[in-house]
């Protein structure tokens, strides 16, 4: 079992947070994991992407030329990575921000208006967690309850109010039928 995941969008959309949650949960379950961000001036320019590999075997190259899971939060990311998804792979699109459909018929595509759902539920900034919930539903890569409890356990006590919001966001994403 190996998941090659790329999450891509703008800085500030919680790309790094979401990808770290996947990586940490994988480590928590004693799986092999690597997490590789884009870095340098491009970080300041707004574009942000992150490659996460989760596997029950030792991980070779941490680079992902062909993701089997791609999550995009903006149009440039869609344009850059959509064609690279391996056949049979999964593409999750935040359809609030990406007004474009994939024309590929060899991959599974899921459109979820995550940013819109976040705004509707007063969960601004948690579109990333909504998408994580949706990812769990689509792939079953982690048990929902243990992923949730591990995620909220990393929220510091000073920000306890966020626990409820993150819990709700994950559930909205998980329950979304798209």
């Amino acid at each position: 079992m190996t998941h090659n995941i790329i999450i891509s969008g703008f800085g500030g959309q919680g790309i790094l947070f979401a990808s770290k949650q996947l990586a940490k949960s994988a480590m928590h379950e004693d799986l092999h994991v690597s997490w590789l961000p884009s870095y340098g001036p491009e970080m300041r320019g707004g574009a942000c992407n992150c490659s996460v590999i989760i596997s029950d075997e030792e991980i070779g190259s941490p680079l992902i030329p062909h993701p089997d899971i791609l999550i995009v939060f903006n149009l440039p990311s869609f344009d850059k990575f959509e064609s690279q998804v391996s056949a049979g792979g999964l593409l999750i699109v935040d359809s609030t921000l990406v007004n474009k459909k994939s024309e590929r018929d060899d991959i599974n595509v899921s459109y979820i208006p995550a940013t819109g759902l976040a705004a509707d539920n007063k969960l601004d900034g948690l579109a990333n967690v909504i998408v994580l919930g949706h990812l769990l539903k689509k792939t079953g890569m982690f048990d929902y309850d243990s992923f949730l409890s591990f995620m909220v356990s990393s929220i510091p006590p000073a920000k306890a109010a966020l626990i409820e919001k993150n819990t709700l966001a994950l559930k909205i994403g998980y329950d979304y039928e798209g």
């Binding site: 690597s34 997490w35 590789l36 961000p37 870095y39 941490p62 680079l63």
Partner: peptide
């Protein structure tokens, strides 16, 4: 190298 420096692993 830059990749090892920037990447996260357990």
């Amino acid at each position: 190298d830059g990749a090892l420096g920037q990447m996260m692993e357990p």
